[in-house]
Design a protein around this nucleic acid. Structure first.
Lengths: 116, 116
DNA sequence: TTCATATGTAAGAGAAACCTTTCAGGTGAA
DNA sequence: TTCACCTGAAAGGTTTCTCTTACATATGAA
């Protein structure tokens, strides 16, 4: 396992993906059992296009993965399941992650304007 | 201690507050040592009003706390420091939190429009 | 063919987040 | 008084997020 700690940017992406009630419900539902989009949309009670958008965000953050499968009657169904992530959120852990942020570090280095 | 696990809504608030590179830097800086807003703004390299906004978000989420103190020369300085939060982010932990969400459970009740 | 299932995507509105600039108040020191 | 430092907050613009409605495609069954 050794859940390699995510980089600062990856962590920001994860947190952004999880900071939404609907997406939290999606994770909870998929944690119980994998499901395909239409079935999941019905279970959670939201429209399919909306769920589709949230699934994309979650997958982009690496929190879920989708696989296209064919049902017995030939229908194409996309099943999603959660990845087994495990991140700790504490001041020191966040400090470590923040050290790897690639975002614009405004006035850090000895006023290295690195050209404008 | 006994870091009581946050409710679903509290967790969403925490994650939203942390899903920003600047705020992550703020946490990292304050985790190293407490600081007052103007000093922190200089250290991070952002404008004071901008930092002020981010500090408000972090404090609203319970991740930092600010105390107004008087320096030796009588200046009013607001010092911020991190709280010792410690949250685990895993599918099962999120499922537990999601169960306590108060957000609109979309298609649950029989189309309760509850006035507009 | 028509209906029901499944998939994905594009267009548009409304709300929220993010950032900058500007203003206003306070204290102590020169 | 004027300057330097501290604090707070409002106004405005730009971008992003969130959601709905509508469209487009493919399969199997009646």
């Amino acid at each position: 396992m050794t859940a390699s700690p995510p980089t600062g940017d990856e962590l920001v992406g994860m947190l952004a993906a999880l900071s939404n009630p609907l997406r939290l419900r999606v994770i909870a539902s998929l944690a119980a059992r994998r499901n395909y989009v239409s079935g999941l949309a019905r279970e959670i009670g939201i429209s399919r296009p909306l769920l589709h958008m949230h699934l994309q965000r979650l997958e982009a953050a690496g929190l879920i993965v989708g696989t296209l499968e064919l049902s017995d009657d030939g229908k194409a169904m996309k099943y999603y399941e959660v990845t087994d992530f495990d991140v700790r959120l504490s001041p020191s852990a966040l400090a470590e992650a923040a050290a790897t942020l690639t975002a614009p570090d405004p006035g850090k280095g000895p006023h290295t304007k690195e050209q404008s």
